[in-house]
Nucleic acid binder design. Structure first.
Length: 566
RNA sequence: GACCAUGUAGCUCAGUGGAUAGAGCGCUGCCCUGCGGAGGCAGAGGACGGAGGUUCGAAUCCUCCCAUGGUCGCCA
């Protein structure tokens, strides 16, 4: 990355200044920080290093900055440098260097901005992980999009990524599901279901549909089947539906991991045995307690209930241990409701001698749903929810992904259903980015051939000297930094803001710099054509990292008064 | 009550210890015989919830207070 190159140049200048006694001797071997100034008048890059060295060098910051500028190499990437403000060193990059980067982007093609930060390490992203008790709701959308987008960005950063979905199809919750299906089925057969309604059942329409399908396929043959068979059937049907919903968002999982298998393999038991052996569990009031207070927590936690059944934290621990054996690094995407549980899991892993530091947890807040100006509280059991499919029908996958990525995971945002439904295409910000891509295609694939302009891959780039061209190249080069930042912070939302900035830089270029106009010198036309091709690559890559389509063209808007009835 | 998160423009939100705090939407102007205007440019609009502290420098780090949301079960 260019920052690293600049850092090397500046630390070289510091050392050169010391040799010339323009600066006193002191040890300096760190990376020089480089900012991208907001204000273009402050250069392409700027460093506050002179201010930071003031104490060490015992000189005024501006004086240090002057010494650095005086000892920068006369030729190379840095075209110009100046001291500004309290002691910033502002740097301007050589326009020829900028222009030459276009060839680098074109050569890289679809692999543009791939990094090697991950260096082939394996990384698992666990997300969604909703138990198959019903269709995915809009409540699951945030975790799904954040997880998949993070996975895409981590792949770009050089990790070998596995997407994993953790679920449990055993337990009371699932028993109630099987029972609910059986009751609906018997009701369809016209049998009395009096007295069968025990426990808390699932009331969603989807149970009805599965029961109807069962009746259509097998008639009354299932009359005397056990509840567990109804449960298995319901789970299969619901999972098929969940996969379909995720597919609409272009999300595919590599592994669906069943919690139950951890019991079968003895891993859950092994965790308990080892914790006991390490004296991290004690028996009290009929239950086994984990010494969470040994890790500074408020109170100890029950790990084995008085009925002998482990609490959910135990298989969670076994699962994470299992993950650490399979992957170099692990990221969990959890909703805020899991916030209390994961510290216990990490503590227990530490107690077991595992390295909890290779587990990152990304907690996202829940989106508050608003309909008719009122908050919608959702419950799968009471069938009081809006499905993710319904949302996708209304708004479309690209807009849903972009909307979710427009918020930092920690923000408590609200999603107004009515507003989303009424949001016409003109107000849809996801289209702003897609349209920029379509424009590149319009120039390259439609307009250029129409005018008989033949793309020249060897064209010289040096005619690119317009401010809008420079700004566009600068913005394209920033994609690498953005990927690196997400890989470091595990916060994928930055890409949505980057995408907007990149599209804006292209639109500005598009407005200021005609590519194909007849009165342009041919050299300029060819250089701009190459720049447009590079922009298409950068925009397509950015959209792909967000899981969005990069369209070749955008359909014309419907005329006024002929709104799409949907 | 405890713990965690969040308070930034009219609204929705970005902001990595650095310069005059940004974007979108909305509002006010301006730019089209053009490579698809679903665009571009400019403007108005801010005590960064409050008070202390650390620092050459704080929206950003620390402490306290206020407000909002989430979680506080031998449910997952």
């Amino acid at each position: 990355m260019i920052q690293h190159e600049l850092s090397t140049i500046i630390s070289g200048a510091i050392h050169a200044a010391q040799r010339n006694e323009a600066l006193p001797p002191f040890v300096f071997d760190g990376e020089v920080p480089l900012d991208r100034p907001r204000d273009e008048a402050h250069g392409d890059f700027a460093t506050p290093v002179a201010m930071q060295l003031a104490k060490l060098a015992r000189r005024a910051p501006r004086q240090i900055a002057e010494a650095i500028v005086a000892h920068l190499p006369a030729q190379g990437v840095v075209a110009r440098a100046e001291v500004a403000g309290p002691g910033f060193v502002n740097l301007w990059i050589d326009p020829t260097w900028f222009a030459a980067q276009v060839d680098g982007i074109l050569d890289a093609g679809a692999a543009y901005a791939n990094l090697e930060l991950g260096a082939g390490q394996t990384l698992q992203v666990e997300f969604v992980s909703a138990n198959p008790t019903g269709p995915l709701t809009v409540g699951h959308a945030r975790g799904a999009v954040l997880g998949d987008t993070l996975a895409r960005l981590m792949e770009a950063a050089g990790y070998e990524v596995t997407r994993e979905y953790y679920f449990n199809n055993a337990g009371l919750q699932m028993e109630a599901l099987g029972e609910s299906l059986r009751i609906r089925y018997l009701a369809l057969l016209g049998e009395s279901t009096e007295g069968l309604t025990i426990g808390r059942h699932y009331e969603g329409d989807y149970i009805q549909w599965i029961a109807a399908a069962l009746l259509a396929l097998h008639g009354d043959a299932w009359r005397d089947k056990a509840i567990s068979e109804f449960k298995d059937l319901a789970v299969d049907a619901i999972f098929a539906h969940i996969r379909h919903t995720l597919n609409r968002l272009d999300i595919q999982f590599d592994i669906f991991f069943n919690e139950d298998s951890l019991y079968g393999s003895g891993e859950v038991e092994a965790v308990l045995a080892e914790l006991k052996a390490r004296d991290m569990l004690y028996f009290d009031e009929g239950a086994w307690w984990f010494k969470a207070t040994a890790f500074g927590k408020e109170k100890d936690r029950v790990f084995v209930r008085s009925n002998g059944v482990p609490t959910y934290r135990v298989p969670d621990i076994a699962y994470h241990r299992n993950k650490l054996q399979r992957f170099d690094r692990v990221v969990d995407i959890f909703g805020a409701d899991h916030k209390d549980a994961y510290p216990d899991v990490l503590d227990a892993l530490t107690a077991l001698g595992e390295d909890g530091s290779s587990v990152d947890v990304l907690i996202h807040q829940f989106t508050t749903l608003v309909r008719d100006g009122e908050e919608v509280k959702m419950s799968t059991r009471r069938a009081n929810f809006i499905t993710l499919d319904e949302l996708l029908d209304e708004v479309g996958p690209d807009a849903v992904r972009y909307f979710i990525l427009s918020y930092a995971p920690g923000s408590h945002n609200t999603f107004d259903i009515d507003q989303a439904k009424s949001q016409n295409e003109r107000e849809n910000p996801s289209l702003y980015v897609q349209y920029a891509h379509a424009r590149c295609c319009g120039i390259l694939d439609r307009e250029a051939p129409k005018r008989g302009v033949v793309y020249d891959a060897d064209a010289d780039l040096s005619p690119l000297r317009h401010e809008a061209e420079r700004a566009l190249i600068r913005e394209m080069l920033r994609l690498r930094e953005m990927i690196a930042r997400v890989a470091e912070s595990s916060e994928p939302h930055h890409i949505a803001y980057y995408a907007r900035d990149l599209a804006a830089a292209f639109n500005n270029f598009y407005d200021k710099c005609p590519v194909l106009r007849d009165d342009l010198p041919n050299e300029l036309r060819q250089a701009r054509l190459k720049l447009t091709a590079a922009a298409r690559i950068a925009l397509a890559r950015t959209l792909d990292l967000m899981g969005m389509v990069a369209p070749d063209e955008i359909a014309a808007p419907a005329p006024e008064g002929e709104e799409d009835p949907q």
